[in-house]
């Protein structure tokens, strides 16, 4: 099987060309050279960026959600892998952890809404038990300002996946044997976890953790159902702006799309460095 000559250029045209063309179009749209309004170059929307806090706010909110979701998931997964090894190796656990992988984000969001909203199942149970006396007495867990529901949904999806990943690395790196070795060197169980196991797991899993972080940063389905109109996460912010009927909003929306896509591209470059570094290390 000889590689056909035009395959790679075609691949680049599709995978790089189309998104980059879209990015270029968005850039031109933000200075109103193209698009339904096209009226000739203007830097108006770029200058307005300073006065319009919407995008910056959405970015900060997304950052908070991503840091909290991935951070919490990493802590949970590390805790399980380092503290509950015997449980993790026994049935039904390994299989059980795969279950959340079959849940689409949209379904998780719908489920959590049905579980946690003020008319949801938990609220009903607490009402029946006499813990709350009305709808309003139940705390606001979804469509709340802090994004609790959004974070919870992401944690539910990410932490089992990270646990499986950490566990795979744990076994691959033969950490159990390393544990015995460090104990002969005089280390306590806690010292082994803190000084050997946790750093090793985090280092090897860093690219995947960063990938989860980037994916959460750009999350759409979950905040669409579990978020508020304000503050919004980045993807929701841009998509709603672009789909609005008011054409005068389009340039600002293109600008936001261009900036966010560029920012995420930089993050991916960081990720690639990480991947290359770990390739060099593992040979």
């Amino acid at each position: 099987m000889k590689p056909l000559k035009p395959i790679l250029p075609l691949y680049a045209l599709l995978v790089l060309g189309l998104p980059l063309a879209g990015l270029g179009y968005a850039l031109l749209g933000s200075v109103v050279v193209v698009g339904p309004l096209a009226e000739g170059f203007t830097g108006r929307y770029w200058r307005a960026l300073g006065h319009e806090p919407g995008l910056g706010y959405a970015a900060l909110y997304s950052l908070w959600i991503a840091v909290a979701s991935v951070g919490l998931s990493v802590v949970l997964a590390l805790g399980l892998v380092l503290r509950a090894q015997p449980t993790l190796r026994r049935a039904p656990l390994p299989g059980l952890l795969y279950v959340p992988l079959v849940l689409p984000a949209l379904v998780v969001a719908f489920y959590l809404f049905q579980l946690l909203s003020r008319t949801g199942w938990l609220s009903r149970i607490s009402f029946q038990l006499g813990l709350t006396s009305s709808l309003e007495a139940f705390p606001e867990l979804v469509q709340d300002g802090a994004g609790l529901g959004i974070i919870l949904a992401h944690v539910l999806l990410i932490f089992p996946f990270l646990t499986l990943l950490f566990q795979a690395i744990y076994q691959e790196s033969r950490l159990a044997e390393l544990d015995q070795l460090t104990s002969t060197l005089g280390a306590s169980a806690g010292q082994f976890r803190r000084r050997v196991a946790a750093p090793l797991l985090l280092r090897r899993a860093a690219p995947t953790v960063l990938l989860s972080f980037i994916a959460t940063l750009g999350a759409y389905d979950i905040p669409l159902l579990l978020g508020r109109p304000y503050p919004q996460m980045l993807s929701v912010f841009i998509a709603t702006k672009l789909q609005r009927f008011d054409l005068r909003e389009l340039p600002a929306a293109y600008l936001a799309g261009f900036l966010v896509a560029s920012g995420l591209l930089v993050l991916i470059l960081v990720l690639l460095r990480l991947v290359n570094r770990s390739r060099v290390e593992t040979g």
Binding site: L18, P19, A21, L23, A215, I238, I268, L272
Partner: peptide, 24 residues
């Protein structure tokens, strides 16, 4: 370089990719 190129879709959330390529 080609491997790096393959990581590109990870950078763009699907919905953002969709609105970017929509005009085309």
């Amino acid at each position: 370089r080609w491997t790096a190129l393959s990581y590109l879709p990870y950078a763009l959330p699907p919905v953002l990719l969709a609105v970017l390529i929509q005009p085309f």
